[in-house]
């Protein structure tokens, strides 16, 4: 990474955090959700680089959320420095276990098996009355040792956290993709032979294990449609750059919000047509537009 770019990145962060203060609440909320989803998709991107698509990524999303929710309820804490590592550990534990089993699979079978596990979690949660069954329950807004910054539109800490964690995770993934390991993943896809390493790749996904953002959690997070949404986002964004899933997630959330607004009765159709349009005309995802633009800049 050239020095100036790095500087820009590091300098941009506080600016962005500051700027978030002035965002209208709905956009801040939408961004938080989009970043949380982008983070999940970032994990998905790693898998897709290795030629694997998971239709069960919702499992980790849901697991992280419930870890945070359950701890918040039983320990009555909202301290992110406690909740996040806990969610991470839970995700890591399950991912390691499942990774051992799942890493033998590929293609559709990988997708379907991961979906099956996610659906089993869904089934368990729906049966768990202490967690409110399918209604779920509310989670207190997070704090940092009791400190919870807010503006008129609601708490800001979640958005900041989402920004910082996404940033760190993206940086990490970016480095990773350029490491020998990362190239190995490309190689895996190229000749479709699984390498033991895949188990480890699954572990990377645990970076996505958190969702303090929504304030409300329910088992639907582990339902297959949620996982499908992540794959949707991955394709919208593209997999060629770490920023692509984030861009994809933000675009997806905006698209859906406006589809709801423009056509409350037929918003699914708008989503479907956009999806088909992107697959047809931008097979590398929206990020390819950015790449094209960059290429033009370079050539001129």
């Amino acid at each position: 990474m050239p020095g100036t770019k790095k500087l820009l990145l590091i300098g941009g962060m506080p600016l962005l955090l500051l700027g978030s203060w002035f965002l209208p609440g709905w956009l801040g909320f939408l961004l938080t959700i989009a970043l949380a989803k982008g983070l999940v998709v970032l994990g998905l991107l790693l898998l897709m680089r290795a030629g694997l698509v998971s239709f069960g990524q919702g499992l980790y999303y849901c697991l992280g959320a419930y870890t945070v929710g359950a701890l918040g309820q039983y320990l009555e804490t909202s301290n992110v420095l406690l909740l996040l590592p806990a969610a991470l550990t839970a995700g890591l534990g399950v991912a390691t276990l499942l990774g051992l089993l799942i890493c033998r699979y590929r293609d559709i079978f990988f997708a379907m098996l991961s979906m099956a596990f996610s659906m089993i979690l869904y089934g368990v949660l729906v049966k768990t009355m202490t967690f409110g069954s399918s209604d779920g329950f509310n989670v207190a807004p997070p704090s940092l040792f009791g400190w919870a910054p807010a503006n008129d539109n609601g708490p800001l800490l979640t958005l900041w956290l989402a920004l910082i964690i996404t940033f760190i995770a993206a940086l990490f993934v970016w480095r990773y993709l350029r490491s020998p390991m990362g190239y190995a993943a490309e190689a895996v896809r190229e000749n479709e032979i699984r390498v033991e390493y895949l188990g480890r790749s699954v572990q990377r996904i645990i970076y996505t294990k958190y969702l303090l953002a929504a304030g409300h959690i329910d088992p639907e997070m582990a339902y297959w449609t949620t996982s499908g949404e992540f794959v949707f986002i991955a394709l919208v964004g593209g997999t060629s750059h770490v920023a692509a899933p984030l861009l994809g997630a933000i675009l997806f959330e905006l698209l859906r919000t406006y589809a709801f607004e423009i056509s409350p009765y037929t918003w699914q159709m708008i989503l479907g047509i956009s999806l088909l349009g992107i697959i047809l005309f931008l097979p590398q995802g929206v990020w390819s537009l950015v790449e094209r633009y960059q290429a033009r800049l370079k050539s001129s």
């Binding site: 820009l8 956009l27 961004l31 940033f167 920023a243 984030l246 861009l247 933000i250 905006l254 950015v290």
Partner: peptide, 20 residues
């Protein structure tokens, strides 16, 4: 890099929102 883009998108979002 990714950050400036997020910013651009959000600004665009606000603009679209404002007009709508």
């Amino acid at each position: 890099m990714q950050i400036s883009l997020i910013k651009k998108t959000s600004v665009a979002g606000i603009l679209v929102a404002a007009t709508l």
